[in-house]
């Protein structure tokens, strides 16, 4: 059983990986994955604990995770690799020709751990519902998790999915919104105010749990609580407040770091703030 401190160490290394991957590729999205790192680390290392050696596309008999906001790929790849789905040396190929680590997650290259391509926003929750329905049909008790961005909620398809999941009691599904309040063009409030998200999700029939997503202990506790709420006739939503760019002071809460890579000096500064806890790839 990994302790909170051990999970935090992994998260710090994942953040280092994200900075080094995006820097190495001279492209990518550092802000989002830095903010959701704690959640992804907790989910894989503490909550789902899938067997990386037995990855199958069907995923029968294990919990499943879908990343709807595919531009968080750097963080997901790092977590998959650090968890054991593939060697960490492959992280250096991120976004380069011939890599299995495509700019946005893809199934075509056969990277273990990935079951659906994502990047075009608004589709992941629907996909997760489908996978959850398949689990019910298969009498498979395992759960389906989905991470979405907050800006992504502006895609109308999400609201189709929210309505469907509650209306059809898809209660083996835990969706997580990375509520960092920023998107490419600026704060959500300026781009398109979304109002009271918790009230909206509840009005749609979801069981909503608020969570601060940059505190490992709170993340683990809330995820356990969310698991407890499954199987009760309602889908579960975690409204996860995070800081975009968390862990690197000059990236924190700055929408400019949505899709910009750090230069050499910025990379050096960022890495000085993130100790090498596991070995760098």
């Amino acid at each position: 059983m990994l302790s909170i401190q051990e999970l935090e160490k992994i998260a710090t290394q994942v953040r280092r990986d994200i900075i080094r991957m995006v820097h190495g590729a001279s492209s990518g999205h550092p802000g989002g994955p830095l903010g959701s790192t704690d959640f992804l680390v907790a989910l894989y290392f503490k909550i789902m604990k899938p067997d990386p050696g037995k990855f199958t596309m069907d995923g029968v008999g294990e919990d499943l995770f879908f990343l709807s906001n595919g531009h968080l790929s750097a963080g997901w790849y790092s977590v998959l690799s650090r968890y054991g789905y593939f060697g960490t040396d492959e992280l250096g190929s991120f976004r380069k020709m011939g890599s299995r680590l495509q700019g946005h997650p893809a199934t075509a290259e056969g990277l273990p751990g990935i079951r659906m391509s994502s990047g075009s926003l608004g589709q992941g929750l629907s996909v997760s519902i489908g996978a959850a329905l398949a689990k019910k049909l298969n009498h498979d008790e395992h759960l389906v998790y989905c991470l979405m961005g907050d800006g992504e909620l502006q895609e109308g398809q999400n609201w189709e999915a929210l309505m469907f999941a509650a209306g059809n009691k898809v209660d083996n599904l835990i969706a997580v919104v990375d509520y960092n309040g920023v998107q490419i063009d600026g704060p959500n409030e300026k781009v398109l105010p979304m109002g009271d998200l918790r009230a909206k999700f509840e009005a749609f029939g979801w069981n909503v749990l608020p969570m601060y997503g940059n505190d490992m202990e709170e993340v683990v506790d809330t995820l356990k609580k969310a698991q407890w709420f499954t199987g009760q006739g309602q889908p579960v939503m975690i409204l996860m407040t995070t800081h975009m760019g968390f862990g690197v002071d000059f990236m924190t809460d700055d929408h400019e770091w949505h899709g910009v890579f750090p230069n050499d000096a910025q990379t050096k500064t960022a890495l000085e703030q993130l100790n090498e806890t596991l070995e760098d790839y």
């Binding site: 069907d58 499943l64 629907s126 489908g130 398949a134």
Partner: peptide
């Protein structure tokens, strides 16, 4: 997309 998910 639900259909796509069901294949998994």
């Amino acid at each position: 997309c639900i259909a796509a998910g069901l294949t998994i």
